[in-house]
Design a protein around this nucleic acid. Structure first.
Length: 494
RNA sequence: GCACGGGUGUCAGAGCGGCUAUGAGCGGGAUUGCAGAUCCUGAGACCUGAGUUCAAAUCUCAGCCUGUGCUCCA
């Protein structure tokens, strides 16, 4: 079954094709680095991380480019507010961007170009657009003239230029700009006092926002490429501006073969915004919850649907994540490197085993089918959850060589799907880590072990009252214990 | 106003012409000293109206409700 993707421009799911067989050139709009990353950024880059991972799993060689917007009004304003050098501000925020995204197990892109490195290219494109009659020089900069390519208006949002034309005029007045039409957007902004500037044929100034992505994607891929992604708020005007610039400059239509946009994150039913005070930075959330739980909660919906983030959602995700990890841990503990490969040996006695493996194969196919259907991670997660139930059943039914071999199979199954594609599995070492490996746990380990030993003695003597009171004592230390047939294990309470 | 989405059980959230989604929560049961984890199992749904069809959450039309964009925003 071929990969299908929803293309915003065509407004439907289409078969995914690439310009060059086996190679995907993908550009995703990055962050403007003036502040910490928030939940919305997490969702966006998580969405494209899944797309990135699935394309690679499908055998494509993916060239993933994501930019940093490192000069912009907001950066200048923020730097002025704090008295910090804007370059230092940019560097600091790029650092925290990497820190947050790494925590969420988002694979790095292949390139992270910064727009200040492409000022020359942007000037060249702007000059070309002026020559072609698609742009003009005004008092305060260079503007792209929408009317010069009116047929390209509304490509992504479906807006009708005639409806917008009728409202023109009023807003241009009073801004001090000599831009001809309120729909026109800036390619170059003339310098204002106290701002960082670059030289240009139109005097000192700095590039407009939209032109950077055209310059950087062209630098990376040439005139046309396969996927352009971003948040669904970038549809207008940013991505439509790119269509104007890119197509007029290159003469190619389309420049972008597949436009992909991710949905937004709401908080408790309201749009996330600073003014509402419900603005969640990744840094804040990760103080409270496991990054992989946050990751699971955000990929637990189709990437185009809006997500309403709330406590219940995180609770569900934590619970599911734990289930998956319990299964993964059990599989890792039960497996044996040298187990007899399956299915081999006396097949007649292994019918349940063979059936179960066939069932899991089908689930793996279901997983692939879900991902092939416009990266339906929610459906894919459902397959993983169904699979771990099957695995849990088999772990308790099988024994001996069979369980070892089946566990090998299960480890591979899980790493192939939940690990490589969904990115929600910790490393094998972390999954099997003993309490002592965590410094917070190491601190209390001796005390806990001593209490556990006393409890074990009490339990052996069937003194349940004493055993339970020791457990309560452990609970007061935020320690959770679990009795298993092989002894008692413990962990810090979540 | 214009544009683009969405309305599925208590909640989250897939499916989008015929087939148990899945998970949380709730109800039984197995296991367990108890708890936890695990497994088995039950109840519970497709906004309204009309149409197409042998068959409609699923397609068409109308209505109602709701989200988002149209200004910087992932």
């Amino acid at each position: 079954m071929p990969l299908r993707v929803h293309d915003t421009r065509r407004r439907e799911k289409v078969d995914f094709t690439t310009m060059k067989p086996g190679v995907v050139n993908m550009y995703v709009c990055g962050v403007t680095v003036y502040d910490l990353c928030h939940l919305g950024h997490a969702r966006c880059y998580l969405s494209f991380d899944l797309i990135h991972r699935w394309l690679e799993k499908s055998g494509y060689d993916v060239n993933y480019v994501q930019n940093f917007t490192d000069i912009d009004d907001k950066i200048i304003v923020r730097a002025n507010e704090t008295g910090e050098d804007w370059k230092a501000l940019v560097e600091a925020n790029i650092e925290t961007y990497y820190r947050d995204m790494d925590a969420l197990n988002i694979l790095r892109a292949d390139q992270y170009p910064r727009c200040t490195e492409f000022v020359e290219e942007m000037i060249a494109i702007s000059s070309d657009l002026i020559e072609k009659g698609n742009a003009y020089v005004a008092d305060d900069g260079v503007y792209f003239s929408i009317e010069s390519a009116a047929e390209k208006y509304g490509m992504l949002t479906g807006q009708n230029i005639d409806a917008v034309r009728s409202g023109a005029g009023g807003r241009v007045q009073g801004t001090g700009s000599t831009k001809r039409d309120h729909k026109d957007f800036a390619l170059w902004k003339s310098a204002k006092p106290g701002e960082p500037t670059w030289d240009s044929p139109w005097g000192p100034g700095r590039p407009g926002w939209h032109i950077e992505c055209t310059a950087m994607s062209m630098d990376a891929f040439g005139e046309q490429f396969d996927i352009h992604g971003g948040g669904h708020d970038l549809l207008f005007p940013h991505h439509e501006a790119e269509i104007f610039q890119g197509e007029c400059h290159t003469g190619c239509s389309p420049v972008v073969h597949h436009w992909l946009h991710n949905g937004f994150v709401n908080i408790d039913g309201e749009k996330m915004s600073k003014s509402l005070g419900n603005f969640w930075t990744i840094e804040d959330i990760l103080e409270k919850i496991d990054p992989l739980v946050l990751r699971l909660s955000l990929i637990n919906a189709h990437y185009r649907s809006p997500i309403d983030m709330n406590e219940q959602l995180l609770k569900d995700a934590a619970k599911n994540h734990e289930k998956i990890l319990n299964c993964y841990r059990a599989a890792l503990e039960l497996r044996a490197e040298n187990a007899v490969p399956l299915p081999e040996g006396d097949l007649a006695s292994k019918i349940p085993l063979v059936k179960s493996m066939a069932l899991l194969e089908m689930m793996a196919q279901g997983f692939a089918k879900a991902m092939d259907d416009d990266f339906n991670s929610r459906e894919a997660i459902a397959k993983v959850l169904a699979a771990i139930r099957e695995m849990g059943k088999m772990f308790s039914v099988l024994d001996g060589d069979d369980v070892e071999a089946f566990a090998n199979f299960a480890v591979e199954w899980l790493e192939d799907t939940a690990g490589d594609v969904l990115g929600i599995l910790p490393t094998r070492d972390l999954t099997l880590a003993e309490p002592e490996d965590d410094p917070r746990k190491a601190e209390i380990a001796d005390e806990v072990e001593e209490l556990l030993a006393r409890r074990a003695t009490a339990r052996a003597a069937k003194d349940w009252e004493a055993a339970d009171s020791i457990r309560e004592e452990l609970n007061r230390l935020s320690v959770e214990i679990i009795d298993t047939p092989n002894g008692t294990t413990w962990d810090l309470a979540p």
